[in-house]
Computed example of a mutant assay.
Amino acid sequence: MKGFPNYLVALALMALACSIVSAYDPAPLQDFCVALNTTADAVFVNGKFCKDPKLVTANDFFFPGLNTPRSTTSQLGSNVTLLDVSKIPGLNTLGVSLARIDFAPYGLNPPHTHPRATEILVVVEGTLYVGFVTSNPDNRLITKTLYPGDVFVFPIGLIHFQFNVGKTNAVSFSGLSSQNPGLIVIAKNVFGANPPINPDVLIKAFQLEKNVVDDLQKKFAA
């Protein structure tokens, strides 16, 4: 992938800027706070419990192989590799995370929101049609077609999407202003809720026939 290292450097800088300017997480109260799954020898600050600084190693801040293409054989033709605090414990309290998104031709990262993060995306391969929708009452759709090297920002909490409109694979990277940005996939969360939302609610909310709602609930419950 020509120029790939340069894009990673640019992305790291963008992620840092996103964290400084728009970070939503509580600000760090110390140099670092590496996450632990147990409370032994830990001090609770914010985010997760923190490892004793004397026991911290480089691996707590490391993740290998993000340059490796991911499978896009899913029904949507996309694959998101999110590096949040669960993948890199050293992100705890630092207010930033990173994602690689792989797209098959005409692959889609469907309409979704990140309740705790603004996202800044850079395209490194392919052509993406991206956009977000503003909140009520305007519900304005703001879209752009992106090419390699182009950057786009999705404001915190707003519904947004990315769609590969090209005939070749596409790859993008995103910086997010949270160690744990969260994910709400609109269709999955509404029609795949567990336990299911009463169909009468969805029939009225989306102005759909009952058989359509029943079919969607079966599809997204899988």
Score class of each variant (00 low, 15 high):
L8T: 02
V21C: 08
D52T: 11
Y7H: 15
F32K: 06
P64R: 12
V56F: 04
F4G: 07
L11C: 04
D25S: 11
L8E: 04
N6W: 03
V9Y: 07
L8Q: 10
S19H: 10
L13S: 11
C18Q: 12
A12W: 00
D52L: 08
P53T: 03
Y24H: 12
M14R: 13
V45F: 05
F4W: 14
F61H: 06
F44C: 01
Q30Y: 09
D25I: 06
T38M: 02
A27N: 04
L8V: 13
A10H: 09
V34S: 07
G47M: 03
A58F: 02
L8I: 15
P26A: 05
A15R: 12
G65H: 10
V21A: 14
L55M: 12
Q30V: 07
A23S: 13
C50W: 05
K51Y: 08
N59F: 12
L36A: 04
N37W: 05
L13H: 14
A23E: 01
D52V: 06
A35P: 05
S19L: 00
P28Y: 08
Y24D: 03
D31H: 13
D60G: 06
I20Y: 10
I20G: 00
S22Y: 13
F4S: 13
P5L: 04
A35T: 08
C50P: 02
T38G: 13
K54F: 01
V43N: 12
P28D: 03
P64K: 10
P28T: 03
A40M: 04
Y7N: 05
L13G: 12
D41L: 01
P64C: 02
S19P: 00
T57E: 07
A15K: 10
C50I: 08
V9G: 01
P64W: 02
T39L: 10
T39V: 13
F49E: 03
D31S: 12
L36G: 00
D60F: 10
F61C: 04
K2F: 08
G65T: 02
